[in-house]
Design a protein around this nucleic acid. Sequence first.
DNA 1: CCTACCGATCGGTAGG
DNA 2: CCTACCGATCGGTAGG
Lengths: 204, 204
Amino acid sequence: MKTMIPGKTTRGQHTRMSILSKAMQLASKEGLEGLSIGRLSTGLNMSKSGLLAHFGSKEDLQLATVDLACDRYNDQIVQPALKSTKGITRLMSLCGFWLKYHEQDTLPGGCFFLAVSSEFDSRAGRVRKRIKFTMSRWLRLLKRELYHAQKAGEIQRDTDTEQIAFELNAIGHGANWAYQLYEDRGVFQKARHAIERTLQAIRS
Amino acid sequence: MKTMIPGKTTRGQHTRMSILSKAMQLASKEGLEGLSIGRLSTGLNMSKSGLLAHFGSKEDLQLATVDLACDRYNDQIVQPALKSTKGITRLMSLCGFWLKYHEQDTLPGGCFFLAVSSEFDSRAGRVRKRIKFTMSRWLRLLKRELYHAQKAGEIQRDTDTEQIAFELNAIGHGANWAYQLYEDRGVFQKARHAIERTLQAIRS
DNA sequence: CCTACCGATCGGTAGG
DNA sequence: CCTACCGATCGGTAGG
């Protein structure tokens, strides 16, 4: 899912990346549909057609933006957490990096994926599918670490990993939701408490 | 916060109500900004200007739609739950009606407030304020019942009601999020389990 | 509640 | 990567 295309020049790649980076930031605030090519290009001191030349259509721009966001979340949340030993430790590391990413205002409009999944959940098409696919991978990652924790005897053998993954994800999204609406960073601490309690309850 | 205006004729009120009802449904799918006056009026076999005559501006239409949604949630979730005795019973009743409301596909695009709060959380203005205000009332309602439960000795005396209200809300929103993306009604059962476990953990 | 209309902006294309 | 342009749609107004 890397967004770099090998055949392009370094110069073109750089422009393409700055477009997508800006698009990701704007989309966290206004969504992928609310983001207009006109405003995006103006913000980058480009012409609309110059920008579109990199992607062909708005839908392709949206898809590339989702992929870049996926890469960024991977680099800053998943990869760092993979350094921890698998199981409960890695699971808490994943949640910790996830919350920290948004607590530090990395994106101006909060969680990119919460924003765009809410926006596209009632639309048909490739963009919705890509978002859904990316979210599935995230949930599967949580479930996988719960599975490892289970096999290692860290949590109860009869734990419903699907259930706990749902809850952890809900807590994280709940924190992002509340933070965007109330601008109170305290909700991230609430989320950490909730995650701790949830995992404590299934500890063996 | 009732949306009826006393001075208007019955006929005008009826038209106004059918506009708002349709607007609420469309907004659950496309948001309050994505909802355009053109498409809304076409769907109601009206002219754009005929529709706008009821509200003056799109922002006023959006505000009235938020208020209608608030009334509807009140009628179908809060009022029914108020028949239960206060405390834990009423709290579970509130969550139950809330989940059932969305499990039964009452709105075509899922939870109205989840959709519009995600959409407006990065915009300034009156609409965002109204949504925020409505959400605050909902969270306060959850907290109030937790407080009653605490006073009645149903839950532990040192319970952080703000924390638990945050968690219950996160679980409900998490279910709506997952349902819209995966179209799997099973998430509502997951949410019920999570709520049950959360309340069980603080039981005295 | 309507028709007729306004300027602004939308995504996208032609041609370079 | 640009200028110049396309038809469609946006929110909103005038006047009835």
